[in-house]
């Protein structure tokens, strides 16, 4: 169980949850959040937004009953928390493009923050695409070298993949597929974090099994981060 210290609405159906405790995790990993004893029975996999000292934050959107109940939780209440699970983004070097679409922005805050602090990284350019509104507008600039955002368009149009040593992405399939294709053309590695319905979150139930170039993989355990070509170049 973890103590909620804050759970505020920051956009249309979008919330920022903060819990207190001693947590571990690396960018791109997720926690299983249990909001109820009975329904929904299963926990919700939600990626790490920010991890500092004794605070762990999650950025989430109401997508169903679980996240709706989560949005009703107040500071001082507790939630079940297990993790961190999944592999997270790998270590990269040089000039990095970080690209997010919609709620795919969620794991990219901590990702940029850690990259920016890393001596092997020369620049971290963050590109975020939203369909209706930008969330946490004033926060993103703090964690990257340059920040570009777009509302209602295609964020991939603004990313010159050839100019980077690697691309880290999270967002709609169409966005990550496009980046993967461009990356392949220019010989650049594109890492994508994919979303899936999960049961156990630890690799046992095979609910999140996905087809890859190297056979079926478990999104929760082998992923959620994969090389784009493993997923989209089948």
């Amino acid at each position: 169980m973890a103590l909620i210290t804050d759970n505020k609405k920051i956009g249309n159906g979008i919330y920022l949850l903060e819990v207190e405790g001693r947590f571990k995790g690396s960018p791109g990993q997720f926690y299983m959040i249990q909001v109820a004893e009975t329904y929904p029975l299963l926990s919700r996999p939600i990626s790490i937004f920010e991890l500092t000292g004794n605070k762990l934050k999650f950025l989430y959107r109401i997508a169903g009953e679980g996240t709706r109940l989560l949005s009703e939780k107040k500071g001082g209440e507790c939630i079940g928390l297990r993790g961190p699970y999944g592999n997270g983004y790998p270590s990269v070097k040089g000039k990095i493009a970080v690209v997010g679409g919609g709620m795919g922005a969620a794991p990219l805050y901590e990702t940029c923050k850690r990259l920016k602090e890393h001596p092997d990284i020369t620049a971290v350019d963050l590109y975020l695409g939203f369909s209706e509104e930008i969330i946490l507008k004033n926060e993103w600039e703090k964690v990257c070298s340059s920040f570009f955002y777009d509302i209602g368009g295609m964020i991939t149009k603004h990313v010159d993949v050839a100019d980077y040593d690697a691309v880290l992405a999270c967002g709609p399939d169409i966005m990550m597929k496009k980046l993967t294709e461009t990356g392949k053309k220019h010989g650049k590695k594109v890492y994508v974090s994919i979303e899936s319905r999960m049961g156990c979150g630890i690799g046992a139930c095979l609910s999140c099994s996905c087809k890859t170039a190297n056979g079926n993989k478990k999104v929760c355990k082998d992923g959620p981060v994969f090389l784009g070509v493993e997923i989209y170049d089948l």
Partner: peptide
Amino acid sequence: IRLWETPMGV
């Protein structure tokens, strides 16, 4: 889809 939740069940 391989998994779907329903009240008190999966």
